[in-house]
Amino acid sequence: MEGIEGQIPLILTAGIGLYAAIRIVAERRTLRKLPYLNVLSFAVAASVALLIPHPLALAAAAAYFVGSTLESNAIASAYAGGPERQ
């Protein structure tokens, strides 16, 4: 439990990520899982940037966030029936 004082934002974001993960597992409708997955990707991107204050960490956070968004986009579009059936 050492060093918890300076880490409050990090513990908060990681805890929100765990909450979102539990909601993803508990939710049964596929399309309603995707907003929780979005919350999780916000939390993980914020944790990566808070863990290492290095310029490449910004690129890693942005790459993870854009990748996760692209994944949600593809899953939702494929579930809805593909980009051509709108």
Partner: peptide, 28 residues
């Protein structure tokens, strides 16, 4: 909410800009 899920919108911009300011100031 669907648009926020499907594409990086202003909320993603706010998060990544905060990370950039945290790491490298205004250029970040």
């Amino acid at each position: 909410m669907g648009n926020i899920v499907s594409s990086p919108d202003a909320s993603a911009g706010t998060l990544l800009a905060s990370c950039g300011v945290f790491i490298a100031g205004i250029p970040g």
